[in-house]
Design a binder for these strands. Structure first.
Length: 419
RNA sequence: GGGGGAAUGUCCCGAGCGGCAAAGGGGGCGGACUGUAAAUCCGCUGGCUAUGCCUUCGCAGGUUCGAGUCCUGCUUCCCCCA
């Protein structure tokens, strides 16, 4: 791959910025991209009400595709989510209800409009749900038309299946069918929308290639596969998971400020890589930022945080988050734009214990944990270390525009506001 | 169908002579050091109206002053024989 010289903007950008793990046919795909009618899709499961940072690489690939003259298609897995992808799972997924799936789908949809331009034009993005064709499939017909092209022998040798079998873990027939449906999606999308490229995370390689294979047998034009590397931080942790939970992309599930903070706390070694993947800054600018060493690298992290946040939440909100962080960390001032939790004034008047205040703010899970944190010196009220677990938060402490600043550790701050 | 083994702290792995809120690790959180980084070191890692009370070792019973530990039945998983 390193010696491949792409002619298309699309492949060049993806290669330069580090999005590519594997591609089924660089030269062929390059030709297709140059011709200007490359339509590509990425499937997204509807297993949660929002996508998280782990899906961001995929979304960015669609973004670059559109920027370089292709047509991006985010595919909602409204149909396949009813089955459940066993890839990378060593346990069966729990089966979601149709209502859940529908809700999740609606939550996920909203994020794409931030990255893609939708419409009816040739290069406008198109949102499709595979429920469109999967839910009306007739079993017998499907088996005759599609099922006969699948070799169980080969399916058994696929990593996702083999892993389960090797470990003697249950793999239901339902899940076993997932790859057939995903392969069929690819073929159906080609017929309906002229899609010739499927992208995805590296764990999707097997599923995607199976689709290409099915396409060949069912008479589609040549299809292509392109996968992105599985992202981990330099210390080996999976991207997008923190103790509080996933780093969600929807603002109603994770405050913009927290999203900004997530990127601000990037490890030194990851800054360059993440700037390329998660911002649209030009490469020469990124190269300059990568050169920064020592404490100066913090400037690069701030740029990363603001740029990455601006892409999804808008520049204004991103700069607001940056400002809030600067006040909080560098100037030691309490910014009223910190994430806020509301509490009824009567509760404060009735005597609000410090322990339950931290629980209400969501900084700790239980009063017992709050007690422990006080012993460890981890809790602060208006920047003063809390030492008395029996203390009450009187109304006189709510000095920041009717709110009191509660902190856990050095980084997590919440304003508890009387209403 | 027969024989043997397993299930432990609601993140995971895992020890546990009848006295157990239950060893140890990973992960996570907090503290120290720093640069809101990494590495390192230290502490914490069931709940509550808290010198006490409540709930936890697959499920349901039983023996016992006392059961994660012993007995019976059940469920699920694994291994061997058929």
């Amino acid at each position: 791959m390193s010696d491949f010289k792409p002619k298309s903007d699309f492949l060049r950008t993806l290669i330069e910025r580090g999005y590519i793990h594997q591609c089924s046919d660089y030269a062929g795909l390059d030709e297709k991209a140059v011709s200007g009618d490359l339509v590509a899709y990425i499937g997204f499961d509807c297993t949660a009400a929002s996508l998280h940072v782990g899906s961001l690489v995929q979304i960015m690939m669609l973004h670059w595709l559109q920027k370089s003259g292709g047509k991006p298609v985010p595919l909602m897995g409204g149909g396949t989510t009813r089955v459940g992808d066993p890839s990378g799972r060593d346990e069966s997924r729990k089966i979601l209800t149709l209502d859940d799936i529908e809700n999740n789908k609606n939550g996920i949809k909203s994020v794409f409009s931030k990255f893609l331009k939708f419409g009816d034009g040739k290069h406008d993005a198109l949102m499709i749900d595979n429920a469109e064709w999967l839910t009306t499939l007739n079993y017998i017909e499907f088996l005759r038309d599609v099922g006969r092209h699948f070799s169980v022998n080969r399916m058994l040798s696929m990593d996702s299946v083999k892993m389960r079998l090797d470990r003697d873990q249950e793999l239901s027939f339902l899940e076993f069918n997932y790859m057939c449906l995903q392969a069929y999606d690819f073929v159906e999308l080609n017929k309906r929308y002229g899609i010739t490229l499927q992208m995805g995370g590296s764990d999707q390689w097997g599923n995607i290639v199976t689709g290409i294979d099915l396409g060949r047998r069912m008479g589609t034009p040549q299809l292509y596969a392109l996968t992105s590397p599985l992202l981990t931080t330099s210390s080996g942790a999976k991207m997008g998971k923190t103790a509080q939970g996933a780093v969600w992309l929807n603002a109603d599930m994770l405050p913009v400020y927290d999203y900004w903070q997530y990127w601000r706390n990037t490890e030194d070694r990851d800054v360059g890589r993440f700037l390329k993947l998660f911002t649209t800054l030009p490469l020469d600018e990124i190269e300059r930022l990568e050169q920064l060493g020592g404490a100066e690298i913090n400037d690069a992290k701030k740029i990363l945080a603001t740029e990455a946040t601006a892409l999804i939440h808008g520049r204004e909100a991103a700069e607001q988050a940056e400002l809030t962080a600067r006040k909080t960390f560098e100037e030691g001032v309490t910014a009223t734009s910190l994430p806020t939790v509301e509490i009824a004034a009567v509760e404060v008047a009735a005597g609000l214990g410090i322990l339950s205040a931290f629980v209400k703010a969501g900084l700790v899970a239980s009063t017992s944990e709050a007690r422990r944190q006080i012993k460890a010196g981890g809790l602060r009220v208006n920047d003063e270390a809390a030492s008395d677990e029996r203390a009450n938060l009187g109304a006189d402490l709510f000095v920041h525009d009717g709110a009191v600043k509660l902190s856990l550790g050095k980084k997590k701050h919440i304003l508890l506001k009387q209403v």
